[in-house]
Simulated assay, not measured.
Amino acid sequence: MEKYTVSKTIGLVAGIIFILSALGFGGLYMLGTSLGKALGSQTGPSVDVPFMFVVLMYILLIGFITGLGSLGLKRKAWRSGYFVFCWSMGLLLLIVFFNSIGALGKAIEFLILCVSGVYFLLGYFVKKEE
């Protein structure tokens, strides 16, 4: 078996899932705001539209780094940076999970915990397969 096969597979799958979720989030957001404007249920001009696009671009960037970053694991500098990225994303998502207990619902909180676990697992495999 080739070196870093498991890391590349997990990284590409997680990256594709992040990119698809960002595109789905953006599509649903655009659909919701346009329907709100068309039906007249929006109370005033929306100030958070640019902020939502920043969040969407951030999620897309994380997806691209996760997916494409797993392809460059043969270089030592990239591998160590990717390891730090994976563990920091896992830690940040774990902090988000603990901060959101009781606020988002059990399913979404469990999803955040699972994504955090995937990032920790990805970082583990990157370090293990060295």
Rank of each mutant, 00 (worst) to 15 (best):
V96Q: 13
V96T: 09
F97Q: 03
N99I: 13
S100H: 11
S100M: 13
I101K: 03
I101D: 02
G102N: 03
G102W: 06
G102P: 02
A103S: 08
A103P: 04
A103K: 01
A103M: 12
L104N: 03
L104Q: 01
G105M: 04
G105K: 03
G105R: 02
G105N: 02
G105Y: 05
K106M: 11
K106C: 08
K106A: 14
A107C: 15
A107F: 14
A107M: 13
A107G: 06
I108S: 06
I108C: 02
I108H: 11
E109I: 00
F110K: 07
F110Q: 08
L113R: 06
L113K: 06
C114V: 11
C114K: 08
C114G: 15
V115Q: 04
V115M: 09
V115S: 01
S116D: 10
S116N: 14
S116V: 14
S116K: 05
G117F: 15
G117V: 12
G117M: 11
G117R: 05
V118M: 05
V118F: 06
V118Q: 00
V118C: 02
Y119I: 14
Y119D: 08
F120W: 14
F120T: 07
F120V: 15
L121A: 12
L121M: 15
L122Q: 04
L122G: 00
L122E: 08
G123I: 05
Y124V: 07
Y124F: 15
Y124K: 07
Y124L: 07
F125H: 05
F125K: 00
V126A: 03
V126M: 08
V126L: 07
K127L: 14
K127R: 10
K127S: 08
K127I: 13
